[in-house]
Amino acid sequence: MTTIERNGGDKRSLEYLSDKCVGCGICTEICPTESLKLGPVLPIARGLVDMDYLNVNEKTCVLCGLCASSCPFEAFEFKINDENIKNLEAYPNWKHSASIDDEECLYCKACETACPQDAITIKRQLPDRSKLVTGEINIDKDECIYCGICEEMCPPEAITLTVKDQMERDIKVDEDKCVYCLVCKRACPVDAIKAVCSSCSYGDYRINPEDAKITGRSILQEDLCVNCGWCQEICPVDAAKVTKPFEGEVIMDTTECKGDSCHACVDVCPCNAASIVDNKSIIEEKFCILCGACSNVCPQNCITIKRDKMNLENVRSKSWQNKLSELIEGK
């Protein structure tokens, strides 16, 4: 964490939020005063060195705010007179985003599991199980000999037999656990189990759709999200929508790639987009945000990031446009 503060006409402050930084180096490429330097990104990512990815030179930084505006991970907070420039009309704003439409969501949790940043939490309320079972099991306690065979055989363990002594004994069916499979009825040696079928057979026509409804909500933590697109790709109903910070492509030349013995790209990728298959690196473009972290750490220079478009809007300054265009020309 580095904080620089200076007071000229305006009060300007830059804060580097190390926990959001992934070490991609975008800011170091565009800083006009070369005040930002990457540390040893791979050893840091592997936990071998305990330091921040980025070193901010407080003496040379002119507090222009370009780094804060161009960081796709929002790892800087740049304020003018205590107002974050994200909220100022004169400054650029990112159009990258991610959202989950609760109307469409089935609450399957696929996105929650896939999200490489653990930014998604799905809360769901499941229906009352007993309402979805199409029948009811009754045990005739006059007929029952309390042998416990049904209890032992019941697949969901819905039957409980309690025998204190021969006079005080009981058998109960937990309706919330019973799935009406009829194993107990078939196994009962004295035919004490009566099945009351509410719909005959396993047909679903008597089940009230309301009783089967799954409700819930999705929570997407935008401060953790890197807009990688995993949720969008994995969602079975297209409830997740992602707009990435950059558009473009990854050009791989894995002739020299050392695969499993190196795997530097896998270790630094914030998106789980890199993997080693058949001892060669593969970057899945659909999960890649073209941040360039892998390209920087690859010792064999196998990875070229070619950005065609930056989804940053409202770049009013010509000099900023020039500087930012350096990110678009391939690296």
């Binding site: 040893p40 791979l42 050392k258 013995s261 190196c262």
Partner: peptide, 9 residues
């Protein structure tokens, strides 16, 4: 195996 990670880091 010439992965060069040591050289780079």
């Amino acid at each position: 195996d010439d992965c060069d990670l040591c050289i780079q880091n």
